[in-house]
């Protein structure tokens, strides 16, 4: 188990280091997030109460599209020099490869989200830190959902010529339940209502989604990668 975790972290560290050095998708995602948030701030009146009601939806829409740029690179990063073949031929468990890549995606997505949040707060005049614990929990669970599903589909589409197009087409419909929960909960948190009652159902949905898709992905990754 310790060896598995060490290998997982070695893969995650390698991906984060590679991305940090090239900043190929990180720069694009951050720029995309900020530009979309800026443009929508001109379309909606930040002083209006209704803005707060769709703020959660807007925020996750931005995170989801920016996230696609990150997860797209996850397995595509292994294509130059046929590194994926070398990894598959090595004794590295495919589950460790998958988990390492999902952790790297998660870390990069969290960086984008934590940079975008203050920008969002300024442009839309929203105090986003009222319930920091809940906000972090929602961000963590939904970002993990995006990372796991995104990494699995990145593995599935890695050898397709139109993978940049195929990945979002597969990813977004699959993420609908997690995004519904995230949008609902984020709106509650941003409008400073207490999270409770019916909202716990959305929390349970997110937890369930994460557990099911993480288990399913770990079970399927061998089949997905070895043709």
């Amino acid at each position: 188990m310790i060896r598995f975790l060490k290998l997982t972290m070695a893969v995650a560290g390698k991906d984060i280091r590679s991305e940090w050095r090239t900043k190929e998708s990180l720069n694009a995602s951050i720029a995309f997030s900020i530009v979309v948030l800026l443009l929508f701030s001109f379309a909606f009146d930040p002083a209006s109460e209704s803005t707060k009601e769709f703020a959660g939806g807007l925020l996750w829409l931005v995170f989801m599209f920016a996230g696609a740029l990150i997860v797209n690179r996850s397995f595509a990063r292994e294509l130059p020099n046929d590194c994926l073949d070398v990894l598959i031929a090595s004794p590295l468990p495919m589950a460790a490869l998958f988990l390492g890549k999902a952790i790297a995606c998660f870390t990069l997505l969290m960086v984008i989200e934590l940079i975008s949040l203050p920008v969002f707060g300024i442009f839309y005049d929203i105090t986003w830190w009222n319930q920091p614990g809940w906000l972090m929990l929602i961000l963590t669970m939904t970002t993990w959902a995006m990372s796991v599903v995104g990494t699995l589909f990145s593995a599935l589409t890695v050898n397709l010529r139109l993978r940049e197009l195929m990945l979002p087409m597969l990813l977004y419909p699959m993420l609908i339940p997690a995004l519904m929960a995230a949008i609902q909960l984020t709106t509650v948190v941003l409008t400073t209502d207490p999270v409770g009652g019916d909202n716990y159902t959305w929390v349970k949905l997110l937890v369930g989604f994460d557990i099911i898709f993480t288990s399913l992905s770990l079970a399927l990754v061998d089949f997905v990668l070895v043709r």
Binding site: K14, R17, S18, R21, T22, P80, N81, D82, C83, D85, V86, A89, S90, P91
Partner: peptide, 17 residues
């Protein structure tokens, strides 16, 4: 697998590292 090595048509190294 730990005792095998594979060299394909390409070099299999990471350019960024």
């Amino acid at each position: 697998r730990r005792r095998t090595a594979y060299l394909g048509h390409n070099i299999g190294i990471y350019d960024e590292l």
